[in-house]
Write a protein that binds this DNA or RNA. Structure first.
Lengths: 132, 132
DNA sequence: TTAATAATAGGAATTATTACTGTTTTTAGT
DNA sequence: ACTAAAAACAGTAATAATTCCTATTATTAA
């Protein structure tokens, strides 16, 4: 694999944007620095970086895939009101794959867990709205 | 909501096919009985039935959504070799949403958990292939 | 029986993503 | 530094899954 400035900037952009951006968000953010960058290049490099384990792809039940610069074992929560995505890493989830392997005989290699609900901020905002 | 023969047959087909069919699988299976049925009708009714809680939509990390006639709380495993989808319902997973709500303050309403790996059959088949 | 309304078939449109192609960059070996 | 092979790029076309649109048909309550 050869170096490319585009790939370097794509990776930096995912890291910089935090908030688990989509390919399109990365593309838009990059157009300031690289006005000619192609959306296909963004997709291809996000896929390559994810396959290499440098990024992590997050598939949500609907909408475009997200990309996460944090690649250690953790899961995600999506707030259905504000749309933000939060990391969760709980003890009960750490041994999840092994537990399922042990109890079912299915050899679990990976998993995808996405929780949906209301984040703390949105719970508070809903309370405020009700109060008015 | 009015009755329709198409909707009734779509539901029966998901129940009959078992194996967590996609919209397209339901469509193909139905063409024997209803040669003129439209793919759009299948999609619309699968969506309606899922929104009503009569079916359950399963979103996998890639490929088309699946539909499940079993709507009680359970999760899924996808075999990466044969592609089959298996139900799992383990004790450790039953209180998952409540645990996350308690420990994070995020108000969890639903979740999607998909395990990937090798089913028992495929583990055995791989052993056999190695033996030859 | 009829009028309203929901549902349909068939096709167009949308969204997310990958594939293709001719050109440009990168890089290893001279 | 020079050059040839390989990789990556930009731009565009293609694909897959799904929803939307519209004129017609089916269902149902009065």
């Amino acid at each position: 694999m050869k170096y490319s400035r585009q790939r370097e900037l794509i990776l930096n952009t995912v890291i910089r944007l935090k908030g688990h951006p989509t390919a399109d968000m990365v593309y838009r953010a990059l157009r300031d620095e690289l006005p000619n960058i192609s959306l296909g290049t963004v997709y291809r490099n996000l896929r390559l970086l994810s396959e290499m384990g440098i990024l992590r792809r997050i598939s949500l039940p609907d909408g475009a895939d997200r990309f996460d610069a944090r690649v250690d074992g953790h899961d995600h929560m999506v707030c259905t009101r504000c749309g933000r995505i939060f990391d969760i890493s709980l003890d009960i989830l750490s041994g999840l794959e092994q537990s399922v392997t042990d109890q079912t005989g299915f050899q679990v290699a990976s998993h995808s867990l996405v929780m949906e609900g209301l984040c703390k901020d949105c719970q508070i905002n809903i309370q405020k709205e009700r109060g008015i």
